[in-house]
Each structure stands twice: as structure tokens, then as C-alpha cells.
């Protein structure tokens, strides 16, 4: 019995540390499961305006500027030209500007894209699945996702057009 004692103690303490660590860390970091800066960007599977299904996974290795917008949201409309300009500037350097329309139908999105004259890829989140998994509440919200699929920074509200270029530059790296 004396010989078995130490290993048993170690196994039990190890299990307690494991389970306890899980419980405590999920209360500290887990929170509501929304992505945090530095955390992993959740994947999504959404229908693009081009008729094909797009996922975040397929942009792995590229920096992604993920912009949630709606045609009814005035600041979203205002930042569109800036996003388009950045898309044109950076698209050859492994940066993808990806617009996620929140809950509108194809026609509205089509018309809007034509109206504001953007050609970066746009996907439609009809069921608001990505909105939920990204924990987006006010629009616009922009996630800057690095090449490793981690959220570098989150911008809630209209983008600061002066620092946008710099922010993308930081994402791409020196």
C-alpha cells in the first residue's frame, strides 16, 4: 500500500489540476465564446454574391479584413469607398477584404454593391450565423484577421480611414 500511495496522489492531484484548470480558465478566457483580440477567428460558411460558398478557411495564409455591414447602416455605406481603395492597394500582397452582409436578401446586396461600386468579395449572412459566432452587435464591425487565422484587432463602428492603411500594413507584417 505504501508503494502505491505516491503515484495515486500524483494521479489524483493531476486530475484535479486538469479539471480545475479547465473550469477556471474557461471562466477567465472562455466567457461567451466570442472571439477576442489574439483569439482564433471562428470559421464560417456563407453564400457569396458570386453564387459560390465561401469559408474563412479558404483564405488561410492571407490577411483578412472582415467587415460586417448592412445597406441600411449609414456608417457602413460611408466606409465602403475606403475599403475598396484598400482592397485595390493590398490585394496583390495577400490581403483579402471580405464584406459580410448581415441578413439582407440578394437583391438588396446586389444593388448596394453596384451603387457604392465595390468589387471586393461579399458574402451574405442570411441566418446571422457569423454575426452570432463573431459576437457582432453594432454595425459596422471590422475584424482584422492575420495569416494564422487569429484576430489581430477588432474595430467596432466606422473605421478610422486614416489609420486603416496602417492597420492593414501591420497585419501584413514588416
Amino acid at each position: 500500500m505504501g508503494k502505491a500511495r505516491k503515484p495515486i496522489q500524483i494521479v489524483i492531484l493531476f486530475l484535479i489540476v486538469l479539471l480545475g484548470g479547465y473550469a477556471i480558465s474557461s471562466s477567465v478566457f472562455g466567457g461567451d465564446g466570442k472571439p477576442q483580440e489574439g483569439g482564433k477567428a471562428p470559421n464560417f460558411e456563407l453564400l457569396g454574391l458570386d453564387g459560390a460558398t465561401h469559408t474563412l478557411e479558404e483564405f488561410r495564409g492571407k490577411s483578412v479584413v472582415l467587415n460586417f455591414w448592412g445597406s441600411w447602416c449609414a456608417p457602413c455605406v460611408k466606409e465602403m469607398p475606403a475599403l475598396q481603395a484598400q482592397w485595390e492597394k493590398w490585394k496583390d500582397q495577400g490581403v483579402v477584404v471580405l464584406g459580410v452582409n448581415v441578413g439582407e436578401d440578394q437583391m438588396t446586396v446586389d444593388n448596394f454593391v453596384k451603387l457604392v461600386d465595390i468589387d471586393f468579395p461579399v458574402v451574405m449572412d442570411k441566418g446571422r450565423d457569423a454575426v452570432r459566432s463573431y459576437g457582432v452587435s453594432p454595425l459596422p464591425t471590422t475584424f482584422f484577421i492575420n495569416t494564422k487565422g487569429r484576430v489581430d484587432s477588432i474595430h467596432i463602428g466606422q473605421l478610422d480611414l486614416n489609420s486603416l492603411d496602417e492597420q492593414i500594413g501591420k497585419l501584413v507584417g514588416p
Partner: peptide
């Protein structure tokens, strides 16, 4: 009830339950 210190207390009570029991029951 979701705060780290409360969860830590619960984990410690759990550890105490297991270890107190084993320490005495065997």
C-alpha cells in the same frame, strides 16, 4: 458565479472532497 475566484473556490472544495475522502476512507 462565473468569476474566476468563485470557480476557484468550487474547484478547491472539489479537491478537498476527493482528498479528504481518500485520506480517510482507505
Amino acid at each position: 458565479y462565473e468569476s474566476w475566484w468563485f470557480v476557484t473556490l468550487l474547484v478547491m472544495i472539489g479537491a478537498s472532497l476527493v482528498i479528504c475522502s481518500l485520506d480517510r476512507v482507505l
